[in-house]
């Protein structure tokens, strides 16, 4: 196993690195579809408060007076050495902007992930063990969760809990309660596909012979669930973890805007409205790095968690 696994891990890591580089290039090309003058126009906007010398420095830093491919090479080279450039709006280092916003988003996203997993397990458990009528309703919940836009969930929660019940105030978005409600908003659409996969897994696993054997040994439903069924049923969701991280990052744009939080999502929103391309480029490519890294970790973990997964087959997939 060890040499086969090593080769598999190395191949996967190599693929991941290539994907990250190409994602950077793709993002750069998409962003550069904007006519080059738009950047200098937004720089020359008197409201930006930049002097002619500032503008000259920015233009030469990004090579804005040179062809797109030269700009790409310049930008990609800096990205590889960890240099993310400067914001066109504020002249701050992009790494500083991202660094300042990251803790807020990490708190929000990790709370949301926790809530989403809790919701998904609760829904799946209920759908499997509740009396048939309730189970039927629970099975419809994921589909319902997926039909409600993120922003509607957020607005309803704010209307109910901030304006009517005064559980939190929108003027203090970083309080624990406000964070909790923002996290629920972000968690609901993420919990739905997780619950669907868990339900499908539970349906499958509980039909297996080992479940019958465990039942005949006198295990109750809950014991069977906790000791035997949870692990194999949750395995397919490991492969989904990267997608879920992507959903959390994308959903944070809306959630943070609604709840007035200062996180990565807000940074994206401001960069889009202000045509701040270096910031946008950095956030999108860093998201790709996170996605690819999580995906890689999930791929590398799966054969270790489930010995039935054949490494050689997985490497060719």
């Amino acid at each position: 196993m060890s040499s086969g696994y090593g080769r598999f891990a190395l191949a996967r890591a190599g693929q991941a690195a290539v994907v990250v580089l190409l994602a950077y290039v793709l993002t750069f090309l998409v962003i550069s579809v904007l006519p080059g003058d738009a950047i200098t126009n937004s720089l020359r906007d008197p409201q930006s408060g930049l002097s002619e010398a500032d503008i000259q420095r920015i233009v030469s830093y990004y090579g804005l007076d040179q062809p797109v491919l030269v700009q790409l090479a310049l930008s990609l080279g800096r990205f590889l050495t960890g240099e993310l450039g400067f914001s066109l709006q504020s002249n701050l280092a992009v790494s500083q902007i991202v660094g300042d916003a990251l803790p807020s988003t990490l708190t929000l996203a990790s709370t949301a992930l926790f809530i989403a997993v809790a919701f998904a397990v609760a829904i799946a458990y209920g759908a499997h063990y509740a009396p048939p009528r309730w189970a039927g309703i629970l099975r419809c919940i994921p589909s319902f969760f997926l039909s409600v836009p993120n922003f509607v969930i957020g607005l309803v929660l704010i209307e109910l809990f901030a304006f009517r019940l005064h559980s939190f105030t929108t003027t203090d978005p970083n309080s624990a309660t406000a964070t909790l409600f923002a996290a629920v908003t972000l968690a609901i659409p993420v919990s739905a596909p997780l619950a669907e996969v868990l339900i499908a897994g539970l349906d499958h696993e509980s039909r297996q012979e080992y479940a019958l054997v465990a039942r005949s040994r006198g295990l109750t439903g809950a014991q069977l669930f906790a000791r035997h069924l949870v692990k194999p049923s949750a395995l397919p969701s490991v492969a989904m973890i990267a997608l879920i991280v992507g959903e959390l990052l994308g959903g944070s744009v809306i959630t943070e805007t609604i709840f007035g939080r200062d996180g990565i999502g807000t940074v994206v929103q401001k960069a889009v409205t202000g045509e701040d391309q270096p910031v946008l480029q950095a956030v999108v490519s860093l998201s790709a790095v996170v996605f690819v890294a999580v995906n890689l970790a999930a791929d590398l973990l799966t054969p270790l968690l489930d010995p039935r997964v054949n490494v050689r087959e997985a490497a060719n997939a």
């Binding site: 994907v19 190409l22 959903e247 994308g250 998201s287 790709a288 996605f291 995906n295």
Partner: peptide, 15 residues
């Protein structure tokens, strides 16, 4: 793979 690597909603926002 590259298209998938960029979170869907972020990709839409950038485009």
């Amino acid at each position: 793979d590259v298209l998938l690597a960029i979170p869907g909603f972020l990709l839409a926002v950038v485009i």
